[in-house]
Design a protein around this nucleic acid. Structure first.
Length: 862
RNA sequence: GCCCCUGUGGCGGAAUGGUAGACGCGAACGACUCAAAAUCGUUUGUCGAAAGAUGUGCCCGUUCGAGUCGGGCCAGGGGCACCA
């Protein structure tokens, strides 16, 4: 065995062996129990970043561990390969999105291989290939046939920079999630998936997902946004027409003082025709900003239409109708009734326009009809000033009003969701073509399945903004499959989130003639453990759940939830480095600082490679200037605090970076990267190497020597690590490896020690597979360590035969004693009282009470 | 505004209501070396020479005993939001 472990040789050697022997290929025919371990597949941006490394290392350790436990493991990898960056590259560099993407995939695949992940590459897929998206088109047609896809003209979120439509989920504070541009409203014919049909199911299903983080379930619950209440009609006084209103507080109907409708409510529009002032007001409302800050400060404004409506519980009671800027057309019915006493927003409005404020819910004696102050009461209580409802509790009153409305025919119970149908049309080239044809005679006609895939044309031009498919000379011109006449293809493509909504199904089986085999789904799904970033808590994870349920509903698959357990890992963070330097002459001119004393320095970020650490301080290598060490934040190019996984692998080896990714921070929290940390990891790899070299020492000829304490430690570690890995507590598993390593190093030579070293090798093998294979081969182990089983442990060996018992006086630790495990209460009490330290602490006071926890502690109460 | 999470050494973090700080990083000292690196050893919450005292964001409470349970605050992070 050589002095040092050389990853630059060993890593590649074993990666080639795994490839050649197809070690990690999942066997569909296996008789073993199965486990599907999946990490969210990457977008092929060009380079693997450190966040990927952390994500995939966690999945890899779990997958390798499951193999060792005797499972047939499916651990595949693919590429979420459609998307905007490819088109941006095409526009900027004049390359084809396909070529750019495939080149990136090749590079990133090589990077992943250098990290030694136990992946089944035979099932690799890329969503941009017709072999994948053709099947997606077939599924889309199936969902269409099942009534879950429809097309309608609707106001959509239009991103003027990316020149495409965005789903509601992709609009953040009124801006496009990718471009950051202010989103506009446009009317377009769009394809939709009926996710709202599944709102209730998706919500109920959350309670079955025990293996999901509470946080993600809560986020999805909020997003679906269920609220229950009454939908009722307020009749326009003197007509047969009415205004529909949705409310979650029907109990407060007797506190109503006005009705407010949205600026884009049909009634507003029709009234505005002859009312220029109302037109102005509506225009004003539409100008209002949509960011959180603007909404916070926006004043509640209304326009009195002069109309009035009858109160449904008392036709003689008339309420004024306002157009108001705070009422949204796309939630509920676009109209609300205002009950100022019990809704803050209504109260603000009522105070501004001097409308009545009548208390109808009160707790205790606070029942005066006059409602003072400017704070609405939204708590529980009894109904007051409410005719026949007076005295009821809030829930009783709600039920009573709903029953009365249903009985009298002016309203009914209704459930509203915040969730909207998923608009999937995108005016882009680099996506799955939507398989439909528009015929002047026949209307919208699905592409016959025999004609799939609808393949993207290769010859496209990106020098103009907008969708290249729209202006392609020939691609869209086809004959109608129905009547044979001239027709045009749909030129929109599917949202990229469709691609990632079913890829896990395709991993289970990859028939050429259909999206998946049912047997494959039954065999592998649901995914046992899914791992990815929290940023997908809503978008991807909700869409994937929806697709799975939609396919189940139309009879394609037999599961309702795709991911049994979900784990969201934290980010990798790094310190930031900044230097302040004097501005150059050119900068002074450019920024107009020539005469200003205030701008005497320029602050710039420095990358870790440009900085030299000396003691606690840091200096810029190029200039020698002092570097300010800033906050530890998410790695980003603009802050220059990124590290390149390839460089780390080249300098320290794959096992060291893998070990770092698992160490210290709990996996759901952020992991601060540090140079010192990775060096420590690389040192530990070498320390293990040296220890593994001692496996033979004290073996033969020393058989008589047994080291019971060490043997017990090994059994304890085997059991504890298994529990840690299954709980994904990799940081704890790592700590146990350190402990066992230290214990073995200190132990005298014996056959027990050699055996411990062999077991340690198996325990670290999922984390440091290259080192493990190298040592395994040198120890003349059979086959590969990657195929070796997890070591067994004896439950009887987990308990110590000697225990340290704490002695407390009045709950404070005064002494500890070491006794045989199972020592009786009386003996423990006697031993405790015999201690000098205990006697000193007692100060001669009599002991009133003794609490003994066997094998743990004695507490003397004086 | 509503909902959720997190507060423990210089740092990352351990701890079924039962010895707080496992393990790692960093630091200090020592050994080896002509020297350095590597390696090995010792120490490392705070105050104190020691005995000891004190200590898990703050305040109350439950308990023989609280980092852990309950109530009330404070701070940081995240999610949702003119949602009727």
């Amino acid at each position: 065995m050589s002095e040092r472990f050389d990853p630059s040789v060993a890593d590649g050697r074993w990666q080639r062996v795994w490839d050649e022997r197809q070690t990690f290929r999942a066997d569909d025919a296996s008789e073993k129990p199965r486990s599907f371990v999946l990490e969210m597949f990457p977008y092929p941006s060009g380079r693997i970043h450190i966040g990927h490394v952390r994500n995939y290392t966690m999945g890899d350790v779990l997958a390798r561990y499951k193999r060792m436990q005797g499972f047939e493991v499916l651990h595949p990898m693919g590429w979420d390969a459609f998307g905007m960056p490819a088109e941006n590259a095409a526009m900027e560099k004049g390359v084809h999105p396909g070529g750019w993407t495939r080149e990136n995939i090749a590079n990133m695949k090589a990077q992943l291989k250098r990290l030694g992940f136990a992946l089944d590459w035979s099932r690799e897929l890329a969503t941009c290939e017709p072999e994948y998206y053709g099947h997606e088109q077939a599924l889309f047609l199936d969902l269409y046939a099942g009534g879950l896809v429809y097309r309608k003209e609707s106001a959509v979120n239009w991103d003027p920079v990316d020149m495409t439509v965005l789903a509601n989920e992709q609009v953040i504070d009124g801006r496009g999630w990718r471009s950051g541009a202010l989103v506009e409203k446009r009317k377009l014919n769009q394809w939709f998936l009926k996710i709202t049909d599944f709102a209730e199911e998706l919500l109920d299903g959350l309670s079955t997902l025990d293996g999901w983080p509470e946080k993600v379930r809560t986020m999805q619950e909020n997003w679906i946004g269920k609220s229950q209440g009454l939908r009722c009609t307020f009749k326009l006084a003197g007509t047969q027409d009415g205004i529909a209103v949705f409310t979650t507080r029907p109990d407060t109907l007797f506190g109503a003082s006005f009705l407010a409708i949205a600026a884009d409510h049909p009634l507003s529009a029709s009234m505005a025709k002859n009312a220029p002032k109302l037109q102005d007001f509506i225009a004003e409302c539409k100008r209002g900003g949509t960011t959180a800050a603007e909404l916070e400060t926006a004043e509640k404004l209304g326009f009195n239409t002069g109309l009035s409506v009858e109160h449904p519980l008392d036709p003689d009671w008339h309420l004024p109708v306002y157009v108001a800027n705070f009422v949204l057309m796309d939630y509920g019915t676009g109209a609300v009734f205002g009950c100022p006493a019990h809704d803050q927003r209504d109260l603000d409005f009522a105070r501004k326009y001097d409308l009545p404020v009548r208390r109808v819910v009160a707790e205790g004696e606070n029942e005066d009809a006059d409602f003072d102050g400017n704070e609405a009461y939204t708590g529980p209580g009894k109904l007051v000033n409410s005719s026949w409802m007076t005295g009821m509790s809030v829930p009783e009153a709600k039920a009573a009003v709903i029953a009365k409305a249903a009985h009298e025919g002016w309203g009914e119970a209704e459930t509203q969701y915040r969730l909207r149908d998923w608009g999937v049309s995108r005016q882009r080239y680099w996506g799955t073509p939507i398989p439909f044809i528009h015929c002047a005679t026949c209307g919208v006609v699905p592409v016959p399945k025999a004609d799939l895939p609808v393949v993207l044309p290769e010859d496209v031009d990106f020098q103009q903004p907008g969708n290249p498919l729209l202006r392609h000379a020939t691609w869209k011109h086809v004959t109608c499959p129905s009547c044979g006449g001239k027709a045009e293809r749909e030129t929109d493509t599917l949202d990229t989130f469709v691609n990632s909504s079913w890829y896990f199904l395709r991993f289970a089986s990859q028939p050429a003639d259909k999206p998946f085999d049912e047997a494959g789904i039954a065999r592998w799904l649901p995914v046992e453990q899914y791992i990815g970033g929290i940023e997908h808590a809503i978008l991807h994870l909700l869409y994937a759940r929806f697709w799975t349920r939609a396919l189940e509903r139309i009879g394609k698959i037999g599961i309702k939830e795709p991911f049994a357990s979900l784990f969201t890992q934290g980010m990798v963070t790094h310190e930031t480095y900044t230097v302040s330097r004097p501005p150059t002459q050119e900068e002074k001119v450019r920024f107009g600082w020539l005469d200003e004393a205030a701008h005497e320095s320029v602050t710039e970020f420095r990358s870790p490679g440009e900085v030299e650490r000396r003691g606690g301080e840091a200096f810029d290598k190029a200039t020698g200037l002092k570097v300010r060490i800033g906050r530890v934040i998410k790695m980003s190019k603009s802050k220059k605090n990124v590290v390149d996984p390839d460089e780390i692998v080249a300098n320290y080896g794959a096992d060291a970076i893998r070990w770092f990714m698992l160490s210290d921070s709990p996996p759901e929290r952020d992991l601060p990267w540090s140079e010192a940390g990775i060096e420590g990891c690389a040192r530990f790899v070498q320390r293990l190497w040296r220890l593994f070299g001692q496996v033979g020492a004290g073996g033969a000829g020393a058989d008589a020597q047994n080291d019971a304490a060490l043997e017990r430690k090994v059994h304890q570690t085997v059991a504890a690590m298994a529990a840690d890995i299954e709980a994904l507590s990799f940081n704890k598993a790592v700590a146990r490896i350190y402990e066992l390593t230290g214990a073995i190093e200190k132990a005298p030579l014996s056959s027990t020690r050699s055996d411990a070293i062999r077991k340690l090798l198996l325990l670290v093998s999922p984390m440091m597979p290259h080192l493990a294979e190298e040592v395994w081969a040198q120890m003349a182990g059979e086959g590969l360590v990657s195929d070796a089983p997890w070591p067994a442990y004896d439950p009887a060996m987990l308990v110590e035969d000697e225990v340290t018992v704490a002695i407390q006086v009045m709950g404070k630790l005064r002494d500890t004693i070491t006794v045989a495990k199972g020592t009786g209460k009386d003996d423990l009490e006697a031993l405790a009282l015999a201690s000098d330290k205990v006697q000193r602490a007692l100060e001669g006071k009599p002991v009133k009470k003794v609490i003994v926890v066997p094998d743990r502690l004695v507490n003397l109460v004086a």
